[in-house]
């Protein structure tokens, strides 16, 4: 198992490097020049030249890249062109917020999507199945921002049950932190829950037809045990894969959700950075997300080992 994870990690290194090159070049293609913005109204050529030199923008591209990646490896992601704060500091500030949102959203997605998927597979072709599918389809088709706004209107404005926006760190006030994040996490989680439900359903349908499920029944086991132990355990492999892949969707969704609920997280950071052409921050965020994606896939691979004994041998 360790060898397998080690091999995966080795493969991850060139992947991350490739992404870093891509990220670095991508920002060269972005229109606009932050130096011009910094230099002010007069656009004094001497000032511009000074600033270019200061930020190393006069070096050839490969030199700029190696300078940058060298720093990245040491944890230095550069300085925000706008706020003059180190990018790593900004990321460390915002990352926990988004991780909290993502984890809570994922919990919503799993808690809703997986049982609904199992239920609709077991009750295939019945009212329960159709109802679950209708709910899932609406979950997929209702846009995040609309659902978010509606929830704010209803739950916060009309009923006054939950705060409409903002963020409280869990260290400060855990209950408040969770209640504040409840609505955004739900909004972000529903779309994922729908995807998860449909995949759980099809995975379960496949597994329920298998010979070993029939064997489990022939042993006389209760149907609940047959479904939850014998069938679900085997359906978990595709479900875990999908959950790891949903990470991308989660980050993309977080950007929007954080805007709606004005949560000072990663999503807000990236939007602000892009609008302000804050290259260093954009690079840091994209790189960070890419690493997050790779870590999620690694975790999924590790989960296969626990789930599928056939893999353990090789």
């Amino acid at each position: 198992m360790l060898a397998f994870i080690g091999r995966r990690l080795l493969v991850a290194i060139p992947t991350i490097l490739l992404i870093s090159v891509f990220v670095f070049l991508l920002q060269q293609l972005l229109p606009g020049d932050p130096i011009l913005a910094m230099a002010g109204e007069e656009r004094d050529p001497a000032t511009i030249e000074f600033l270019r030199e200061k930020y190393g923008l006069n070096d050839p591209l490969p030199v700029q890249y190696f300078k940058w990646i060298g720093g990245v490896i040491q944890g230095d992601l550069g300085i925000s062109l706008r706020t003059n704060q180190p990018v790593s500091e900004l990321l460390l500030q915002k990352l926990p917020v988004t991780i909290q949102l993502a984890v809570m959203a994922l919990i919503f997605a799993v808690v809703i999507g997986v049982p609904a998927g199992i239920l609709s597979a077991v009750k295939k072709g019945t009212v329960v199945d159709y109802a679950a599918n209708v709910v899932a389809l609406s979950g997929l088709s209702i846009p995040n921002f609309w659902l978010g706004i509606m929830l704010i209107l209803l739950v916060s404005v009309k009923w006054g049950l939950l705060p409409a926006s903002g963020y409280t760190p869990p260290g400060e006030d855990l209950v408040r932190s969770i209640t504040t994040m409840l609505m955004p996490a739900f909004v972000l989680g529903t779309a994922l829950a729908a995807t998860l439900m449909r995949h759980t359903r099809s995975a379960m349908l496949g597994v329920l037809k298998s010979d070993y499920v029939r064997t489990a029944r022939a042993k006389g086991l209760y149907e609940r045990r047959v479904i939850l132990r014998h069938a679900f355990r085997n359906a978990l492999v595709p479900i875990v894969t999908l959950t790891a892949l949903l990470f991308g969707e989660l980050v993309a969704g977080a950007v929007l959700t954080e805007q709606i609920f004005t949560i000072p997280g990663f999503g807000k950071l990236v939007v602000d950075a892009v609008f302000n052409r804050d290259y260093a921050v954009v690079q840091g965020i994209v790189l960070c997300t890419a690493v997050g994606f790779i870590v999620m896939n690694l975790l999924a691979d590790a989960a296969y080992f626990a789930l599928n004994p056939r893999l353990r041998k090789s």
């Binding site: 298998s210 010979d211 070993y212 029939r214 064997t215 489990a216 029944r217 022939a218 042993k219 006389g220 086991l221 014998h230 355990r233 085997n234 789930l307 599928n308 004994p309 056939r310």
Partner: peptide
């Protein structure tokens, strides 16, 4: 079933649950 009356099937390759140990699948019954 599984107690006084038991059944075996055609496909031994797929009739055992791949996720569980042999012993566990028998003790369960």
């Amino acid at each position: 079933r599984g107690d006084r009356m038991a059944m075996i099937f055609q496909e031994p390759m797929t009739s055992l649950n791949p996720a569980f140990r042999i012993g566990n699948q028998i003790t369960e019954a």
